[in-house]
Nucleic acid binder design. Structure first.
Length: 261
DNA sequence: ACATTGACCTGAGAGC
DNA sequence: TGCTCTCAGGTCAATG
């Protein structure tokens, strides 16, 4: 679930709550998600403070002053909660950072699919993990977008969701981008016209920007979007026809067979 | 170079 | 009530 707009919202949340407080203690319990020894993680954080954040696709990186970056990936169910440190922890908490100001930041993963790691540098981390440019990277203009698409085969939906191609877009938002650009999910990239690539590029930036502005809250997304209607039996907000679902590459794509050609 | 499948994990909902 | 099955989502590895 946490795709680019959700993670951007987490980033702003951390920025407004968790920076510049001395880290008193770190508790971590995340056997599978943890890519670094618990001891190393604690040692890197305790006594220091978070100083700034960066987002790379679906990854959130938090800089530890005078140390490495804490890397968080939220998988399908991860979230953060900053609250008064009252000694208890929310269910499914696998990372707990106690600050000297009496608050704590909890990393909550209901399903234990995610990642907790350390990195020396965001750029190096992205390279090491085959992360493509962020989908909202200003440097990815229309020209680059077209060039990148021309190098690919396969379907457009697979391309959008491929984190090596572009990072940040998953199943949910790829459906929205395809809907708003009137493109079928299973269209082959090789058959896309210049005009269609332009529309896709626009829709991609538009969808991600608006979703961020609405804090990636599904209840606050425009009714004219696909997402509020993206369920079994949902109707296209544009033509009123039944939305279709189709399974491809293990994911369910929702689209309007009438409005998306 | 692409698609497909299953594993990972958990809770919700369906169907019996 | 309670069991079993399926599904959702992101990533990764194995296979076609």
């Amino acid at each position: 679930m946490p795709e680019l707009p959700d993670v951007e919202t987490f980033k702003r949340y951390v920025d407004s709550t968790s920076l510049h407080h001395r880290i008193k203690k770190v508790e971590v319990d995340a056997p599978r998600m943890l890519r670094v020894a618990p001891r190393i993680l604690r040692k890197a954080l305790e006594g220091s403070e978070f100083s700034k954040t960066e987002r790379l696709g679906k990854y959130l990186l938090i800089s530890v002053k005078g140390g490495p970056w804490l890397v968080l990936h939220f998988g399908m169910s991860g979230m953060l909660e900053y609250a008064k440190d009252a000694g208890e922890r929310p269910a499914h908490t696998h990372l707990l950072v106690h600050f000297a100001n009496g608050y704590r930041l909890a990393g909550i993963w209901q399903r234990r699919l995610g990642r907790i790691d350390l990195a020396d540098d965001p750029v190096a981390y992205a390279e090491a993990h085959d992360l493509g440019p962020d989908a909202l990277d200003r440097a990815i203009g229309l020209k680059d977008f077209k060039r990148m698409l021309r190098e690919r085969r396969g379907t457009i939906k697979a391309a959008l969701m491929d984190q090596i191609f572009l990072s940040g877009i998953g199943n949910i938002y790829s459906d929205e981008i395809l809907f708003q650009s009137g493109t079928r999910p299973d269209v082959k990239v090789s058959g896309l016209s210049d005009a269609r690539m332009r529309t896709l590029h626009r829709a991609m930036r538009h969808v991600l920007r608006i979703a961020i502005a609405r804090q990636a809250d599904p209840d606050r997304l425009p009714e004219s979007w696909l997402l509020p209607h993206r369920y079994k039996g949902g109707k296209c907000p544009y033509c009123g026809g039944a939305l279709q679902q189709k399974r491809s590459s293990g994911r369910t794509a929702y689209f309007c067979p009438h409005c998306q050609q």
